[in-house]
C-alpha cells in the first residue's frame, strides 16, 4: 500500500476525462477500498478515499449517511453539490501482507462512465507454484493532498448517530 492510489495512471486518465467532459457532467462516484491490515478502516483508508473523491468532484459540500461495523468497516452514501451521488466503502481484513484486495473507482457522467481498477496496470503471473500479480508502470501526476479531518469526523459521527450529516471535501 505504498504507492498512493491518487497517482495511479488510470485514475489520472479518468480525471482528465471528467475535466475534459468526455463523459459529460459528473453525476455519480462509487469507490471501494478494501485492504489487508489492522485498525480502523476510516482512519487507515479514509484520507486517501476522500482525496480520490475530492479530486473527481472538486471541493463540494455533501450531505451523507454513514454506517460502520464494530470493527470499523465504513460505508457512506452522499448527495454532493449538483446532486452528484457519491458512495464509498472502506474496510480492512486482518492479515498479512498489508496490501489492497480491492481498489476501484467508478465515475459516472451524463454521457458515459469510466471504471478504474486502481490496482492496475499489472501482469498476471501464473505458475505451477501459484498465481501472483505484478504491478507495473510509472505513477501518474501527484495530486496535492488536502486535509480530510473534518470530513472523516462527519462520516464517523453519521455512523455513530445513524443520522445524515453535512460536510465538505
Amino acid at each position: 500500500m505504498t504507492v498512493p492510489l491518487t497517482t495511479q495512471p488510470g485514475f489520472t486518465r479518468a480525471l482528465a476525462a471528467v475535466r475534459g467532459a468526455e463523459i459529460g457532467l459528473l453525476r455519480a462516484v462509487a469507490l471501494d477500498l478494501v485492504a489487508v491490515g489492522e485498525g480502523d478502516a476510516l482512519r487507515e483508508l479514509g484520507p486517501e478515499a476522500i482525496e480520490l473523491i475530492r479530486s473527481a468532484t472538486g471541493p463540494v459540500s455533501v450531505e451523507l449517511q454513514a454506517h460502520a461495523t464494530a470493527d470499523g468497516a465504513t460505508t457512506f452514501l452522499g448527495r454532493a453539490s449538483h446532486g452528484i451521488a457519491v458512495s464509498a466503502h472502506l474496510s480492512l481484513v486482518a492479515g498479512e501482507p498489508r496490501e489492497y484486495l480491492r481498489a476501484t473507482i467508478r465515475l459516472v457522467g451524463t454521457h458515459g462512465s469510466v471504471l478504474v481498477d486502481l490496482l492496475r496496470p499489472l501482469l498476471d503471473v501464473r505458475t505451477a507454484a501459484g498465481a501472483r500479480q505484478v504491478r507495473f508502470g510509472p505513477p501518474g501526476t501527484q495530486i496535492p493532498a488536502a486535509d480530510a479531518a473534518d470530513t472523516l469526523s462527519a462520516i464517523a459521527e453519521s455512523a455513530r448517530s445513524g443520522r445524515a450529516k453535512s460536510t465538505t471535501w
Binding site: 455519480a28 462509487a30 458512495s87 466503502h89 451524463t110
Partner: peptide, 21 residues
C-alpha cells in the same frame, strides 16, 4: 442509489439505473 443499514453495523449500496448514456 439506495444505501441500506443493518443492525450488525453492516451496509449495502444498491445502484440501479435505466438512464445511462
Amino acid at each position: 442509489v439506495m444505501e441500506l443499514g443493518f443492525a450488525s453495523g453492516g451496509s449495502a449500496v444498491c445502484e440501479i439505473s435505466r438512464g445511462e448514456r
